[in-house]
């Protein structure tokens, strides 16, 4: 079922926290489903033998799986057409068993060059130890 958490992004101001999204631990099934659904069949994410030979010890999650979670953190509250930009840097590898929580903060509410009021939202994804896996920013246009 969809969460019924309420958050009015149109009223958000700089330094407001964005509601967090917590995901269950990443399992090998999570990675297999993402491999098939995404079309990214890189064996590094699903084939433990390949990942060991590549020097990574074990499979690692697709960075885009984590970015997918971060995207959900936005679209839970923002109609997707309002999202203008979404940028991330992958800083640490996500591994089997990691529990990803996405958090965010509005960093600015400002008027863009075209006159639209926009929000800049910093979004990060961290594991259960607080290690930041991915750091990102989204630009969201507010209704006129």
């Amino acid at each position: 079922m969809a969460e019924t958490l309420a958050f009015d992004y149109t009223a958000a101001q700089a330094r407001d926290a964005w509601p967090a999204l917590s995901m269950p631990p990443v399992s090998r099934l999570t990675l297999a489903l993402y491999c098939g659904a995404s079309g990214d069949h890189n064996p590094l994410h699903v084939d433990a033998d390949f990942a060991r030979d590549a020097g990574l010890g074990d499979v690692i999650a697709h960075g885009m799986l984590v970015m997918g979670y971060m995207g959900r953190t936005l679209t839970r509250f923002v109609p997707q057409p309002a999202i203008r930009e979404f940028n991330t840097r992958f800083q640490a590898m996500t591994r089997v068993g990691d529990e990803i929580t996405c958090t965010g903060e509005v960093t600015a509410r400002e008027v863009a060059a075209d006159g639209t009021t926009i929000l800049r939202v910093s979004v990060s994804a961290a594991d259960q130890r607080g290690e930041i896996k991915t750091q990102g920013e989204a630009v969201i246009a507010l209704p006129a």
């Binding site: 890189n42 064996p43 590094l44 390949f50 030979d53 590549a54 020097g55 697709h62 960075g63 885009m64 970015m67 997707q80 057409p81 999202i83 203008r84 930009e85 979404f86 940028n87 991330t88 840097r89 992958f90 590898m93």
Partner: peptide, 17 residues
């Protein structure tokens, strides 16, 4: 070489749905 590759960064700019 595929085994050496990691995804470093990803950015999207959206124009229409």
């Amino acid at each position: 070489e595929l085994p050496k590759v990691l995804h470093g960064a990803q950015g999207f700019r959206y124009h229409r749905m």
